[in-house]
Nucleic acid binder design. Sequence first.
DNA 1: CTGTTAGCGCATTCAA
DNA 2: TTGAATGCGCTAACAG
Lengths: 346, 346
Amino acid sequence: MSEQPTIEAKRSTLVLVAERAGVSIASVSRVLNGQPASAQLAERVRRAADELGYVPDASARTLKTGRTDQIALAVADLGNPVYVKMMHEVARVAAKKGYRLVLSSTGSDPKDQIELLGSLNRGFADGLLMSPLRVTEELVAALQGSRIPTVVIGSLPSEADVDSVRADSVAGVGLAVEHLASTGRRHIAFVNGPVDTVPGAARLEGYLRAVERLGLPTTADLQVAASDFTYKAGRKAAARLLGQCSPDAIVCANDLIAVAVLKELAARRIRVPHDVAVVGMDDSEAAELADPALTSVNLGSAKRARTAAKLLIRRLENPGVATKTVVIEPTLSIRESSAAREVAGE
Amino acid sequence: MSEQPTIEAKRSTLVLVAERAGVSIASVSRVLNGQPASAQLAERVRRAADELGYVPDASARTLKTGRTDQIALAVADLGNPVYVKMMHEVARVAAKKGYRLVLSSTGSDPKDQIELLGSLNRGFADGLLMSPLRVTEELVAALQGSRIPTVVIGSLPSEADVDSVRADSVAGVGLAVEHLASTGRRHIAFVNGPVDTVPGAARLEGYLRAVERLGLPTTADLQVAASDFTYKAGRKAAARLLGQCSPDAIVCANDLIAVAVLKELAARRIRVPHDVAVVGMDDSEAAELADPALTSVNLGSAKRARTAAKLLIRRLENPGVATKTVVIEPTLSIRESSAAREVAGE
DNA sequence: CTGTTAGCGCATTCAA
DNA sequence: TTGAATGCGCTAACAG
């Protein structure tokens, strides 16, 4: 009826194409996979395949070759724009290299990740990308022993023999603190996420190191930890912080928390950046959209994701290569929320 | 070494399990699929499988049964939080029903969708969920002729015989306009997205109908269309709008555009909601996080996604059922940005 | 209740 | 260069 291929009552197979072309199925397979064949035969095969609208069957090919052309991405928190961006980048790289992306949502519990690793043995994906919030010994062991190649986006114990790509978030928080100090802020508070997570621990370390290095006050009342890397948890933490101290700058463990801090400040009629400067982390779109626009530490999430995807594909194409750890250096995107006091004000 | 299953040098297969258990592979298959077997045999099989860390192979099973346990989701714009939320919901429903989610990013061009439909013939997924921005006759034809079940999230021509779930965005815009009118706004402007998209067209229609129904002015200078449903495009459109008229309320085609409008208003020192009320659509997290918090039309994106996923799974489990179109009714989430003038002010 | 066997659609080895 | 035949791991039909 349309200009579609002639016959397509049923999915066509190699056999049908072979019959129509009057050749063997082996020849069809070869031609369609670009292996040498006489021009004449190739032409016949291609025409037949075309006419039948032939499309090779993924599972049959997988069963035979062991390759699925799928890579799995395990993301703990789709509510966090950072992970969404990462997913986006991974999808792009994967598609370009001919892989489909299968999404495997897991909780933040390492058990989930380990279980996922096990289910991967079903062979529904050739490789796995994951970004665990919490890392236990068991998880590292499972990662090392995994039959399917895995690349971790995030920090791992240095002895772990696993491909990984991580941000230097200690340095990242350092950038933020130094920036604030250099624009005259002295009482720099820190709203962290959960300290029992890998990023939470690293960011706290970065904060403490930087504040100490610069000789700034580092009392306990300047520090709070949100129960989660979310807006909601951030809002509560912000309220707690502002109830117990009066900082002139606040560094936040991510942009969602920073936006929450902005909101809480606005609710208390504390002006940003005039009274308090605020810096977020991740440099997500939320930072740009915030009012005032949020200065944020760019931890290279997009680049990390792309790098990790490429690392994984590299290993898939070349299983023998030595494991590799890539560290992405942070940069600072300066916006209104941390403008120096002198130029601020209403 | 660890408490892992004993032997796992290689992926184990039915044959290995059968040997170890001293039974036939058919029995192993049956036991593992919960079919009747003597308690004793079942026990032997299960132990052997356990000891070998047996996991059934997905592609082999697929080749045999024709089921992949995967559903594909085609999303045009991962930059839009609405689609992210939908993905999230779909992932949840799919996982609960035992399906994996494979992400198939496409452009907004219907050709992409049609091509995707074709590639689905590879059999890498049992069904498809898609949310096309633009719908052509060709796409509808491809949808109808598709060999794999597809559910559309969005509007389709009424004669299309395809499962779909859509929002009543005409009514949705109506809610927004009525709300604004009822709080005393008279010059209600509209910042749309591209009019050549399905949602763009529907939202414009909703705006025009509502404004007319209420006897409000509906001059051309009160209407602009952003080139895209993005913040950036929204910002430009907002600037254009405010250059050509002075509304006391602005309805926006989505939250990203609404946030852009808020920003543009702030830049011009126009107060919200005192001078101008703003309403967005989608009721995404961005609406809550905006400053002031954004009144937004909830088009039920989460519910649409869940419903669509369930519809698809229903069809997968029961291919014969008649196609169905579900319409989700909109609601309004009222926040600061549209507070009545009397209570507003500084 | 259990075992034997035949393919699912394909890539690939071995012969010709 | 091409064709015939094998088997990837599994489920299901059939036999016993």
